[in-house]
Structure formats: structure tokens, C-alpha cells
Design a binder for these strands. Structure first.
Lengths: 200, 200
DNA sequence: ACCTGAACACCGTTCAAGT
DNA sequence: ACCTGAACACCGTTCAAGT
């Protein structure tokens, strides 16, 4: 975040800078602390400059959310590639880790009313991509005989619910697990579920 | 919501009225639409009358949240008493139904940063009570030989995560299930998990 | 005790005007 | 095109004053 001299134009990639600044505030202080005026000020830009790049505040949040889904996707994909304990278990750990490392960002991605974000095709696409890798992995695990038969979409939804629940509750506190315990808990939960999904 | 003549005192249970009005706005229009001024106006009361009963807006939301946990608890408890398909499965359905029937209320209960609500003992107590009935049920199902042995607290956490994930994702849309499908999905998910939890 | 209006320090957003 | 300050219609919250 570099200041620039007053009166000069930004003339860099202001959109990128706004996105990074917004994500930074969200990460450090939470969504409630995010104000368009504050972000502008931080970049040495007027409070309305933002409207050249985003329709409104929701639009900004949708873009931040969209980038969150891209990060989530790539971290889950990396976990699958480097998997040591089975792809589904390691993907689950990566998902939960992302949530606990970026709790405010995660809340922006999932904490809003569905309609708020439905009209952002980019966001919808990236969130579907993040789910897609799970469905795909379930399918290939079935074909490899490591998972019981059944509609892969349904099995994926069940697994996603479990992992998402751990992420949400672990974050919100009620699970009362610290960051060292959470990995182990996630693995236990995944294995418990997988035992029930083992081939007969 | 009855209007009263201008200038007169409220002199009823204003706290109760404020709580109900707030919950009503949250239910119908979402949390973002909740303003202290609007609630006061709806009750024919000045915009600062509320501060005689609540410290600030967060305090109001904590109280609304607390009542949400009480409702959730009693609906889950009722489902256990009237259970036909096993207590855990029917409790799961009740939990998810509550979330989908009161999505905005549910988001207020779970969607905030943990620290926001930690300092409200009433809220903490009621949310723990809601979790307590699950731990207790897991424990009694184990004693009845219908669940495999193990730390009941851990098994309860796993089950809670699954059910909470369904509630959150079902609500947010990504699960893409309508209210008729969600019951069936919840039952399937619970059974899938329970198969893995069956005694050996 | 309980309630009031006025005032303060903020917001997001619009818009005519500048370069 | 991109950026600006002024203005508008809101917020939550504080506070001295009323009954």
C-alpha cells in the first residue's frame, strides 16, 4: 500500500489495488470494517474512484469472494496432487485450513444471502469449479474401487457438507478446537465418513 | 406491531417488543435491513429508546441470537422425543429444517466472528445447551448399542459438523436442493454417516 | 425510570465538473 | 477515460433535557 502524491492520477491497475486493499482489510479487521471511503483513502484516491471499477460495494465483495474461490480451488487441487493419505482426506484438510487461515474471507464467500451473489457469473463459475474437483475425485475414487458405488454428485454433497461444517463451526468457535487440533479432527471425521463409504 | 399515539410512553414490555420487531425484520428482510431507527419507528418509539434495554446493536443481535438457540434447542428436543427413524436422524432433520425455515436468523446465530458474541453469557449458555442434547443422545445411543464406542464428544462434533454443513450449504444454495429434497438428503447423509458409526 | 429531540461522526452513492 | 469535491439520504450512538 503506497501513498501517492495528492492530485495525481492513480494510473496503475486501480482495480487490482482496490481488490487487494479490500481483501487486506477483510483479513485484518473483518468485513464490517471495510468501507469504500477507507479503501480509497488507503490508496490515496478519492472516495468515488472505486465506482469506475465496481458497480457498488456488493460488486466489490463479489469480486473478493470470487478470488477466494479461486484460491480455495487451487489449494484443494494442490492437496489432491500431493496427497499422501488419500485424496479426499487431504482435500478435506486443505479446505478446512483455508477457512481457518482466512476466516473473514471465508465468511464473505459463504455468509451472505444466496441472492446477493447469484447475479455474478464469475463468482458462480469459480464456486462451481471448487465443487467440481470434489465430484470428480469422488468419481475417480469410485472407479478405482476405493469408494462404494452411488451417485457421485450425492456422495460429493455429503462430503462437502461434512467438511464445510467443520470449517464453519471450527471457525465460529463452538467446536473449541485450536489450529493444531483441527487437522487431526478433520482427518478423523473424514475417515469416519469414509468407513461408511467403503466398498462392500 | 401496534402504533401508539405520539408522545405517550410505551410502558409495556418494550424489551420484548424490540426483540420481536428485530426478529421480524431479520426474518423478512435480512440482517442488513435491520436498523435501530427503523425498529423504534415501527414501535412508535424514539430512536434512542432502545438503549434503555440494550447496550448497543450487537447486544440486540446477541439477544436475538440467544432466542434463536432456544428455539433450535426445543425443536431438536421435540424431534428426539417424537422420533420414528432413530433420534439422531430425526434431530438432524429438525436442525436443518430450522435453518432453512429461518435462514437469516440462523446466519445471525452462526455467521459472525466468534469474538462478537463470546461476551454474552446467556448466548453462550443457550448455544451450549443446543449442543449438549446432541452429546447426550450420542452417549445414550452408544449405551443402547446402536452406535460404536468412542468419545461421545468427538462423535457428536462430527455429526454436528455434517448437519451444520448441510444447513449452511443448503441455505446458501450451492447444494441446489429445494425444501422438499432437503429432508431426504439430510436423512441419506445421516444414514451414510451412521453406517460408518454402526457397532462392529 | 423511562423517554425525548438535537447533535456528532460516520456511511454508500450520485452527479456535475475538471484533466 | 479517469478522477475529483460537494451534496444527499441515510446510519449508530451520545447527551442534556423533559415527565
Amino acid at each position: 500500500v503506497t501513498k501517492k502524491k495528492r492530485g495525481a492520477y492513480h494510473h496503475g491497475d486501480l482495480r487490482r489495488a482496490l481488490l487487494d486493499a479490500a481483501a487486506g482489510v477483510i483479513h485484518k479487521e473483518g468485513v464490517d470494517a471495510l468501507t469504500l471511503r477507507g479503501v480509497g483513502q488507503k490508496l490515496g484516491v478519492s472516495r468515488t474512484a472505486l465506482y469506475r471499477h465496481f458497480e457498488d460495494k456488493t460488486d466489490l465483495l463479489a469480486a473478493v469472494s470470487s478470488e477466494g474461490f479461486q484460491t480455495l480451488y487451487s489449494e484443494v487441487a494442490a492437496a489432491r496432487s500431493a496427497s499422501r493419505n488419500g485424496p479426499l482426506e487431504d482435500m478435506a484438510v486443505a479446505y478446512v485450513r483455508f477457512a481457518l487461515t482466512n476466516p473473514s474471507h471465508f465468511r464473505v464467500m459463504f455468509g451472505r444471502a444466496p441472492d446477493d451473489f447469484a447475479r455474478y457469473p464469475d463468482l458462480v463459475r469459480h464456486s462451481q469449479q471448487a465443487f467440481g474437483i470434489l465430484v470428480e475425485t469422488v468419481s475417480s475414487e469410485q472407479q478405482a474401487g476405493r469408494l462404494k458405488a452411488g451417485e457421485p454428485l450425492e456422495l460429493a454433497r455429503i462430503l462437502w457438507s461434512l467438511v464445510h461444517g467443520i470449517a464453519t463451526l471450527g471457525m465460529a468457535g463452538p467446536l473449541k478446537l485450536n489450529s493444531e487440533q483441527i487437522d487431526g479432527f478433520t482427518r478423523t471425521a473424514a475417515r469416519t465418513m469414509l468407513d461408511g463409504l467403503a466398498p462392500v
